[in-house]
Amino acid sequence: MATDRFAAWAARSEATLESALPSPDLAPRRLHAAMRHAALGGGKRMRPLLVYAAGTLAGAAEETLDVPAAAVELIHAYSLVHDDLPAMDDDDLRRGRPTVHVAFDEATAILAGDALQTRAFELLAQADAPAQLRVAWLATLAQAAGAAGMCGGQALDIDATGGGQALDELERMHALKTGALIRAAVRLGALAGAAGPDALTRLDGYAAALGLAFQVRDDILDIEASSEQLGKTAGKDAAQAKSTYPALLGMQGARAKLEELADAMRDALAPFDARAEALRALGELAIRRSH
């Protein structure tokens, strides 16, 4: 079953993260403890799962996928630490626990995010893989994390807070803020195997639809779910007057958009055989999830 495979992959990524992060018994202890608080013991691990699922489709060994799976999760964890800061979204709950700046302090949170980000690239640079593959991994993750990806999307989000966005502006923002790292996760896995140009193009289309679907579902859950269900503060988008898919399309329109994106994911994966079942299952999970 896909759920059994996902649990095994999540355990692999957790073990890799555990070994990759510095011990809280070593100085600087507060920084190391904050890094571990941010990265371990929680979250859906969607991005590592996508690395393993895409790598499986491309014929890569799980051992080859451990490092890129951990690296993309470290980038995701760093982004959440910084996103929760008072200067950004100013949130005090993440994955059902106090955010890093609440559990520690704001300066430590900034440093922890910085250290998680750099550790991701250090892992890839030192991976037991051919140099050409390591360079491709590094380029993929760097582009997704920078101004042309996640950081650019966060900047657009800040600019839009308190004001309205048109639908195309909202989609562009989320394609960068959320979608870029999801697309990178799929590509990291695919590059580790034997995926050719046509396969990479199809997988990128799948990942782009998945990234947008993930955000549409987030917007719906922000209205329908409680903070306890989400593990983060519910209702913040409305409180901050942010444009969302339900706000622009209505709840029925947002659900229709979600189904449209589900069809796009299925179409992108249609030419692949049973090796794409994990990717198909992750697509379904993204649009049906309850937290």
Score class of each variant (00 low, 15 high):
12 R>Q: 01
12 R>I: 04
13 S>F: 05
15 A>K: 07
16 T>Y: 03
17 L>V: 11
17 L>W: 00
17 L>G: 02
23 S>Y: 04
25 D>K: 11
26 L>C: 05
27 A>P: 07
28 P>M: 05
32 H>P: 13
35 M>V: 02
35 M>Y: 00
37 H>S: 09
37 H>L: 08
39 A>V: 11
40 L>T: 00
41 G>S: 07
43 G>N: 05
43 G>L: 07
46 M>A: 13
46 M>N: 10
49 L>C: 11
50 L>S: 10
60 A>R: 06
60 A>M: 07
60 A>D: 11
62 E>A: 15
65 L>C: 04
66 D>N: 14
67 V>Y: 04
70 A>I: 07
70 A>T: 10
76 H>S: 13
76 H>G: 03
82 H>Q: 04
84 D>N: 02
87 A>K: 14
88 M>T: 09
91 D>P: 15
92 D>N: 15
98 P>W: 14
99 T>M: 10
110 I>M: 12
111 L>H: 04
112 A>F: 08
113 G>R: 14
121 F>Q: 11
125 A>M: 05
129 A>F: 01
130 P>Y: 04
132 Q>N: 13
133 L>V: 12
134 R>F: 13
138 L>W: 10
141 L>N: 06
145 A>G: 12
146 G>N: 02
146 G>F: 07
148 A>S: 14
152 G>I: 06
152 G>E: 12
153 G>T: 08
154 Q>D: 08
156 L>S: 13
159 D>W: 14
163 G>W: 00
165 Q>I: 01
166 A>K: 08
168 D>F: 03
171 E>R: 14
172 R>V: 09
172 R>K: 11
173 M>I: 00
173 M>D: 00
176 L>D: 10
177 K>S: 07
179 G>Y: 14
180 A>Q: 07
181 L>T: 06
181 L>P: 02
183 R>C: 12
190 A>G: 02
191 L>H: 11
192 A>W: 05
196 G>Q: 04
197 P>Y: 04
199 A>F: 05
203 L>M: 11
205 G>V: 00
207 A>D: 04
210 L>H: 08
210 L>F: 09
212 L>V: 13
212 L>G: 04
212 L>T: 04
213 A>I: 07
214 F>I: 04
219 D>Y: 01
223 I>V: 15
224 E>W: 10
227 S>T: 15
231 G>D: 00
236 K>S: 13
242 K>L: 07
243 S>V: 09
244 T>Y: 02
246 P>D: 03
248 L>F: 05
254 A>T: 00
258 L>C: 03
258 L>P: 03
260 E>P: 06
262 A>I: 09
269 L>E: 00
271 P>G: 08
271 P>K: 01
273 D>I: 05
274 A>Q: 05
274 A>M: 00
275 R>L: 09
276 A>C: 03
277 E>N: 12
284 E>R: 15
287 I>Q: 04
289 R>E: 03
